Simulated assay, not measured.
Amino acid sequence: MSDGVIVMPYPEGHKLKVRGKIIESAAQAFRKNGIRDISVPFIMKGAGLTHGGFYAHFDNKEQLVAEACRYAISDTIALLQEAADQEKQGTKINAVIDYYLSQYHRDKTEMGCILPTLTGEIARSSAEVRQVFTDELERMIDFISDLAEVDKSTGSALLSNMVGTLMLARSVNNSKLSDSLLTAGKKHAKDLIKT
C-alpha cells in the first residue's frame, strides 16, 4: 500500500494473454494492409491497449511482425484443416483448394492467409522476420503436401499456384476477372495433383 492506494497484482497469465491480443491484432492488420503502412499505435488500438504498453511485450516492431507471421500461418493451417475435415465425399485437398480460392477467402483479407499479402514485403524485411517467414512457409508446404499426399516439390508448386492466384484475384478491380482467376486457379491446382 502506498499513499492509501492498494496495488493489486495482475492475475497469473495476464501478460501472456495481453501479448496474444497484440499478436492477433497485428496479424489481422498485416493480413489486410501489409506491414509498412501499419503502425504500432494502430496495432495496440486494435488490441484495445495504449501504445505505451507495447515495449513491455516486444523489443521492436520486427519482433512483432515475426510473431504475427507465425500466428497467422498457424491460424490459416487450422482453417484449412477445418475445411478438409468437413469434406465427407471428395478429396480433402480439393476441399482446401476450393476454400483457399473462394470468393469468401479472397474478400476476407483480415482473416485470410497472410502469404499473398506479405510475400512481397518480406523480401525487404529483417533476417529475423525472413527466417520466421521461411520456417512458416515450409510448415505450410508440408501441410499441403501431406494433405494432398504428394511430394514436397509438387506441394510447393500447388501452394505457389494457390497463393499466386489469390494475390492476383485480390489485386484487380474487375470482379469478373477476379472470379475467373479464382476459377482457373482452382482447375489448375487440382490438375497438379491428379494421379
Rank of each mutant, 00 (worst) to 15 (best):
S2Q: 13
S2V: 14
Y10W: 10
E12D: 12
H14P: 01
K15S: 13
V18W: 02
G20M: 03
I23E: 02
I23V: 15
E24L: 04
S25D: 04
A29D: 05
A29Y: 09
F30C: 04
G34L: 02
I35N: 05
I35G: 08
R36S: 05
D37A: 06
V40L: 05
V40W: 07
F42A: 15
I43A: 11
M44H: 12
K45H: 14
A47L: 11
A47F: 10
G48Y: 01
G52E: 12
G52L: 08
G53Y: 12
F54I: 03
Y55F: 15
A56Q: 13
A56K: 14
H57F: 14
H57Q: 08
F58V: 09
F58Q: 08
N60F: 04
E62G: 03
E62Y: 00
Q63C: 02
L64H: 02
E67C: 05
A68F: 05
C69R: 00
C69G: 04
T76A: 10
T76W: 08
I77D: 04
A78H: 06
A78D: 11
L79I: 01
L79Y: 06
L80D: 13
E82N: 11
D85T: 11
Q86M: 13
K88G: 06
K88I: 06
Q89C: 02
I93H: 14
A95V: 06
V96N: 06
V96H: 09
I97Y: 04
Y99E: 11
Y100W: 07
S102M: 03
Q103F: 03
Q103P: 02
H105L: 04
I114W: 05
I114Q: 04
L115E: 03
T117C: 07
T117D: 01
T117K: 06
L118C: 03
L118W: 01
L118Q: 02
T119M: 01
G120I: 00
I122F: 00
I122K: 00
A123M: 02
S125T: 00
V129K: 01
V129F: 03
F133E: 00
D135A: 09
L137K: 09
L137V: 07
D142Y: 07
D142K: 07
D146Q: 15
D146I: 09
L147S: 07
A148K: 15
A148P: 14
V150I: 14
V150L: 12
G155F: 06
G155H: 12
L159K: 08
S160L: 08
N161G: 06
V163A: 03
G164I: 06
L166W: 09
M167R: 04
L168C: 04
L168R: 07
R170H: 05
R170V: 09
N173T: 13
N174R: 10
K176L: 10
S178A: 15
D179N: 13
S180R: 15
S180D: 15
L182P: 09
T183S: 14
A184W: 09
A184L: 13
A184Y: 12
K187F: 10
K187L: 12
K190F: 03
D191E: 14
I193G: 07
